[in-house]
């Protein structure tokens, strides 16, 4: 048991050494894909929201192909799921509230 416990720091350092280049690759993707929007992109965001609202009003959303509609639904569902992930973080409990 003492020998196994003594090996733990060596295991941790080797795991960290292995994970470092993989983490660097993850950061390269994350900087482009997961980055929060910059202030300079606000007009694009406003244009996107306006396009969504106008297409909802004019009924143009019914003219999508089924494939486009499926993809848009999945993306929209993922964006909404982040709210519930945030709620779990805010209430500091996974299922339900801990009173």
């Amino acid at each position: 048991m003492a020998a196994a416990v003594a090996k733990v720091p060596a295991l941790i350092s080797s795991a960290v050494a292995q994970a470092r280049p993989k983490f660097a690759i993850f950061m390269k993707y994350a900087k482009v894909e997961l980055a929060p929007p910059k202030l300079s992109e606000i007009p694009q965001i406003k244009a996107g929201i306006a396009k969504l609202l106008s297409s909802a009003k004019s009924g143009a959303w019914k003219q999508q192909t089924v494939k486009q509609a499926t993809l848009n639904t999945l993306v929209g569902a993922e964006v909404i799921f982040w709210f519930y992930i945030g709620e779990c973080i805010g209430k500091r409990h996974f299922v339900g509230y801990d009173v």
Binding site: W82, F83, I85, G86, G90, K91
Partner: peptide, 25 residues
């Protein structure tokens, strides 16, 4: 290149969720 609207939506929903969770708790 994820569209800025999607990224804005994700981060803002995350922030709103954290705020709502803490407030309701």
């Amino acid at each position: 290149r994820v569209s800025p609207l999607i990224r804005f939506g994700r981060w803002s929903f995350l922030g709103l969720g954290v705020a709502y969770g803490a407030f309701h708790q």
